[in-house]
Design a protein around this nucleic acid. Structure first.
Lengths: 236, 236
DNA sequence: GTCCATCCTTAACATATTCGTAACATGTTG
DNA sequence: CAACATGTTACGAATATGTTAAGGATGGAC
């Protein structure tokens, strides 16, 4: 059951078997600019999850697979484990301070649904997910730029199809440049991303690594442009 | 009151003041291969929790500290908050309170106890906790990678069709690598997955095991690549 | 219980690679 | 050209991993 509208907005998968709640959520989420897809039971949810929504809003009580099981499966699958899950639970008399519980990207909300609160939580969860993703520009898919293929998942670089060995730092620098291919990556920014603030920006180590990377790229070494006093750019 | 047996299986802390229920749970859990420790009231439970069980099965009605308070304390303590809690309750009226209590690591079951359901929930809760902790899932199905076949169900490894004996840790390491064949598995991640955070990341035991595994793989020992400062990768 | 085999960890040493620094070279900007 | 930023090369300390041996722990057999 699809209901996305999308442009480049975020898609939220709503999993609930109560039609009233589904309509309520859909209406409000779409009004807020999210794409929405719907599943009314656990199995449908698993189908929809394959389309990689940006977030899952998940009722605990479900016919068939229950919410726990759906969550478990999402978190166990390499391809979907990064997707933040916000649980919806039945009405409760008391919720204190379980906020410490939110392991990873999991949050929860209690019914009845307060729309404003819901939207705030969703936004917060998405931001957190973004921030986690930004720790290292980690496109889960391999990135191909001309003759270059960079796969963060296995730390591999291929030039014209042949794998070239990159040391860790070299690889991370190249991955940072690749994550913004065609754009300038500031020197400071690069250093911050790779060394995590543990090194002073005047350090020459970056230059040395850049040289090594260019060597390893062989004929394509000049794909990394220097912009003096600014940074580097990986040509597309 | 201790009742654990083998050192490697998961340990479950059972907290209930009814001897019949305790015996029933202990029998069935041990039969399923879990280690079991017992507490008959809230204070004993807090003592036992210090030994870091993998899961707590917690009756709501307890003499002394009640189940809510025990759960609250477990979830408030940095060292124990990751431990999943499964509540046992007789009254359905309490169910609402439980669901509001905390998500991610908490589940509940109503009495009378259905053993099969109980075991399923426990397994589900443990897996979810693992996923949240970043532990790699072991493949249920036999996995074949080139000349290698790895079957988790009977802990068997076959190389070119002939079975090779692997010790438990060796096997688990190989299985983790196989679960992400072709991809890099971070050293830390590997250690987390196999030792479940009971070992410090600087430990050299992993290296020793890797050597042994390579030996046992014979001609295919080099299928396990080392990426210095990153991790290992099983070539496909 | 004792004995024995196996598994796991630790220790110690060997080897390999990475990464940062220094030093000098080159190029660019004003 | 002066000042500065970056390119390049070489070297070595720090670090990571490979490898082997030894001892502790565990569990089974008797």
């Amino acid at each position: 059951m699809k209901a996305g509208k999308n442009g480049d907005s975020r898609t939220i998968l709503v999993v609930d078997d109560d039609p009233d709640i589904v309509m309520l959520l859909r209406y409000n989420l779409e009004k807020s600019g999210y794409g929405v897809s719907i599943a009314v039971n656990g199995n449908e949810a698993m189908d929809e999850v394959r389309h990689l929504p940006d977030l899952v809003l998940l009722d605990v009580m479900l016919p068939g697979l229950d919410g726990w099981e759906v969550a478990r499966r999402i978190k166990t699958d390499q391809r979907t484990r990064h997707i933040p899950i916000v649980f919806l639970t039945a009405k409760t008399s008391e919720v204190d301070e379980i906020t410490g519980l939110g392991i990873g990207a999991v949050d929860y909300l209690t019914k009845p649904i307060r729309v404003k609160r819901l939207l705030a939580r969703i936004e917060s969860a998405l931001r957190l997910a973004d921030a986690n993703a930004g720790v290292l520009p980690m496109p889960h898919e391999p990135v191909t730029i001309g003759p270059l293929t960079i796969d963060v998942r296995n730390y591999s670089v291929r030039v014209d199809g042949t794998e070239v060995q990159f040391a860790k730092k070299e690889f991370e620098i190249l991955a940072c440049l690749a994550s913004r291919a065609g754009q300038i990556v500031g020197r400071e920014e690069l250093i911050r991303s790779v060394w995590r603030n543990t090194i002073d920006p005047a350090n020459r180590s970056l230059d040395v690594h850049i040289t090594k990377i260019r060597q390893k790229l062989g004929a394509y070494g000049n794909a990394i442009e220097t912009l003096k006093r600014v940074g580097y750019r990986l040509k597309t």
